[in-house]
Amino acid sequence: MKDDEIIALLGNEATHEQAFRMILKAYKEKIYYHVRKIVVDHDDADDVTQETFIKIWRNLDKFRGDSKLYTWLYRIATNEALTFLQKKRKDNSVSIDDNEMLVASLESPRSDTYLDGDEIQMKLQKALLELTDKQRVVFNLKYFENLKYEEIAEITETSVGGLKATYHFAVKKIEEYLTNH
């Protein structure tokens, strides 16, 4: 299924629901994992994923085709995830860059945490929580999703040059963490 087919369906309001069903089928897992890497906890990721798709549905008529469909979808998902984290930190009265609650989800897994990784995978996730939210988003999209800087620039609405620097510093910081732990 090509994004072009979906975009064509979005051109007609009568076929919006069909387009949405196609988006859902094609992107639900990708959006979920993208959100999960940001919010860490499965239940939180589930909530944010649902909110993301509801927002996608409500804004289907605003998609003009100026950007790629998936970058538009990832942008909505990223914004929803980051907004969710900010609200969660505020509710827990912790600072804006405090990731302790996310670290706790990794270090004290419950039966419903849904983590299945080897030691290095877990260490990488812990290293990621040493980064800021923006660094994490950039690293995830580049490292795990293999997106180009131009695509990440569309999602995060920042410059390519800034993204390269952000990714470079994120990698260095993670390597340092993995070496020392």
């Binding site: 499965h42 419903d112 849904y114 990784g117 995978q121 990488l124």
Partner: peptide, 9 residues
């Protein structure tokens, strides 16, 4: 290339 450890029910 290290994968993410997240799984789903």
């Amino acid at each position: 290339k290290i994968k993410a450890p997240f799984t789903v029910p």
